[in-house]
Every structure is written in structure tokens, then in C-alpha cells.
Design a protein around this nucleic acid. Sequence first.
RNA 1: CGAGGCGUAGCUCAGUUUGGUAGAGUGCCUGGUUUGGGACCAGGAUGCCGCAGGUUCAAGUCCUGUCGCCUCGACCA
Length: 478
Amino acid sequence: MAKQKKMVEEITSMDEDFVKWYTDIVKKAELMSYSSVKGCMIIQPYGYAIWENIQKILDGRFKELGHENVAMPMLIPESLLQKEKDHVEGFAPEVAWVTHGGSEKLQERLCIRPTSETLFCEHFSHIIHSWRDLPKLYNQWCSVVRWEKTTRPFLRSVEFYWQEGHTMHETAEEAKKETEQMLNVYANFCENDLAIPVIKGQKTEKEKFAGAEATYTIEALMHDGKALQSATSHYFGDGFAKAFDITFQNRENKSEYPHQTSWGISTRIIGGIIMTHGDDNGLVLPPAIAPIQVIIIPIAMHKEGVIDKANEILNELKSICRVKMDTSEQTPGWKFAEYEMKGVPLRLEIGPKDIEKGQCVIVRRDNREKIIVNLENLENEVLRLLEEVRKGIYEKALERRNNMTYTAKNMDEIKEISNSKQGFIKAMWCGSKECEEKLKDELGITSRCIPFHQENISDKCAICGEKAKNMLYWGKAY
RNA sequence: CGAGGCGUAGCUCAGUUUGGUAGAGUGCCUGGUUUGGGACCAGGAUGCCGCAGGUUCAAGUCCUGUCGCCUCGACCA
């Protein structure tokens, strides 16, 4: 398709300056606003509505699988954070501390949760006594704080909203199954609801979560060729259980440590949606999470019967989708641009000419296709087109990822690709941390994951030439 | 935390070199004409020039300090 004319002059073109394009979108679509605390953002109604839709869908799926929501404190005593060695080493550099209560200096300082493993563990140690208490399938929706040095809206903020699942199981097998199950919940959500293609895999030792035995991830490729870790699921084994002294009497009346998992997805995924689907006209939202799925724009509103007909359509569509009508005094052209900026999947135009013919015009956000729809068949067509948009943006994203995924057999090829292109690099790896560090130092790329779907590119590690263990995805990450 | 850039109207910015009445575009308010891709006309409101000191008859402009924001690195969801 020929390149579409850019209609929104205020948005920087993504080819010109991707970073600026991203910031422009986030601001112009009124997703968030900066606050007076560095790195903390105000999520505005339109942005929060997206998050609420994400929450609604995922929360439903978690609950279907037996998980229960809880609320843990925001403050963690320092001694509690210290209990698991790897964990504290991983998080200590970026935690914020509360040192005073009113004017009194605290005996022990309290950290603002960067994640809640320690709190859950302490609680689990109190409530888990018997195999009959297991499994415990907990989740909480909350915000956490990590003192990041450089921040970006949604992608990396000091405070961010997320969901953290924490579960305890009788056996390692059951916990591993849970870890895998939740990774699949995220992967299905990303692919089917958000229309973001993801690579499922395992993190290397170097990249795994602080304190985990194994970390699983879904990795997505953004428009600019950088990778975004979109959700993670961790298998903890009984490491935390030992550190926090969580034990239960098993079926043989013996004391045993339970096996644990945790898993999460954050508001960062909103950044992923923007950078996967957005274009030079603004946001493009997957229908499943779009706060407005259909925007009705009456044309020549003052003309007899237009508003009445538009209202009729509004009421009809309310029962099948999230629909709104804009009756403000702005010109139609202004409204077209405005709702494109906001990524609304379908625009419905209804004017005097349409009413005469018993039809309306529906325009898809993803490809701007104009479709004339008979009003008698409206509901079916709207549902069909919403699904078409979902498929359309998924396929476009998948095609782009495929075009931006390269294969390298040796260091020269990795260098060549890394220096001239943006995207994923698939290459064999021997399993050593040294090879990972080498790529990071020399080329600034990190291992994204060991994909579940392995390919045998060659028998040798592309970096050192030793015997290869796995095929890895490499890339520059957000 | 290292290197660079920027703080002036709600927003984007000019004005700083060479000190001399605070500017533009856009947005906002009023009224009217318009309405199938960011309309037009007329009128109107809006500023401790980031903050604190200093130099000067006079500071948005020069000096010192300070705070904040953005970009690129290092670190991380």
C-alpha cells in the first residue's frame, strides 16, 4: 500500500525519531501526564481505561484458574527484605526507603515494595501448616516502586502498576505446571487480545529473576526493532520457603518445604501496545482493550434527523460493544483525526446521504478502509470488523517481526547484523555467561530468551565456537 | 551515576550573541457562518521569563548557586 499522507502534524514521524514519536503519542492521546516527582506518572482516564480493560480480562482468567486476590502492605521491614540473599542483592540497589514516621526516626527502616515476594512468604509461613492448606493461589493488583535512574512513560517509571501472582504448591511438578500455565495465560492474552505476537521461552541464568530457580518470559518485538519483555513467570523451587521457614506436614506426616511460583504483567504492556501497533497518525488499539471500540461521528448534525438516527445507532450498538458518539461542535475532519490519534478501532460516519440510503460508513483504524454498511446488518458487521481489525494488526505485527528476525551462525554474522539492522537475532549458544557478557560488552545486545521452540542452526556456539547447547534469541531490550 | 541539551502564556517555541515597555503560532472564552479528512470571520482573557542571590540607573538577557525536565550511555519490568 502506498504510504498514507500524514494527517496529524503534531506527531513526530516514527521513522524520523522513534523516541519522540512515542512520547508524542502518549501525550497527545492523553494516556498519561508527568507528575512533580521524577519518574512518576499520572495515568489519565484514557490510559487508565486501557489498564482497567487489561485488568478485567486477566483478572477473570486468573480467577477461572482458582486464584484469589489479596492486598499486601506497601512497606517491607528491612530485615524481611534481607532474608533471601539473591533477592535482596537484586533489588536493594533500587529500593526507596521510609526512614521516619512523622518526626520520629524509625528503629528499622521500611522499604517501599519493589515486588512482594518477601511479604507473601512471611504471610505464607503463618498460614501454611498442612498439605491440606495447599495450593495457595494468590494474586494482587497494586503498584510497586523501583528507583530507576532513567525513566520513560509506561516502559520504565519509578512507580508502576502491575499484578503479581504468588502461589505455593505441594510438589515441584505442580509448581512447575503453574509457572507454565501462567506463562501461557499471558502469551494467549498478548497474542489473542492484544494482537501482539510473542516468543515464549526461558531466561538464561544471567537474566533470570533475583532468587528464582527458573524464569520464563514472553518477548515481543517493537516497531523500532527493540525487544520488550512483556510478562514473566518464575519457578522458585523451595528456595524462598527455606529462607522464610515455610513448612507443611505432608501426606506422610513429614515436614516439607512447599514449592513456589510468582508471575506478573505490568502497565509496561501499554507501552508494548503503543510500540507494536501505533503508526504516524497515532495509537492503534486492539479492540479487546480499547476504551472506545466504535466512535460515531454524525455528519451535518444540524440537518433534520441526523442526530436522531445517530442516537438510534448508538443505542443499538451499546449492547454489543463499547461505543461513543461525538456531538461536539468540532468539524468532522477534526474528529476523524482525533479518534485516529486515540486509536479507536472503528469509526462510524452517519450523514444525510447515508440516512437516505439506509446505510452508514465504517472506517477501520488499522488500514483506513471505508466500508459501506447496510443499517439492517449493522451489529453483525461491527462485530465482524472488530475481529478483522484484531486479525489485521496481529498479522501486520507478525509479518514485521518475521522480517526483523535474523539468523547468525558466527560472531562475524552477529556483528554484521547487529551493526546494520534492528531486530531479533537467532543464534546458537554454548550456555556460558562469558559469551552473553561478550555480546553485551561488544554489541550492546542481550539474550532475550531460550525459546521453547528450538531450531538447530548449527552445532557450534556462534560466539565462542564451542559445542552449542541451545538456540537463543538476542536483541536490544527496553 | 557519566556526557550533552532545555526551563519564557495551557501547549510548542522565538527573544539571550549586543541589557532598555513581554512576543508568535496553537489552544482557551464570546458571537456568527460552517460541517463526508484537523473550517472561516469578528472580538476577548491569559505571564513572579524554573527558583535564590549578585552586578547595573535598568536583567528574560550578564555572573554565582540551586531545582527540575529531556536525550544518549551504564543499571533495570
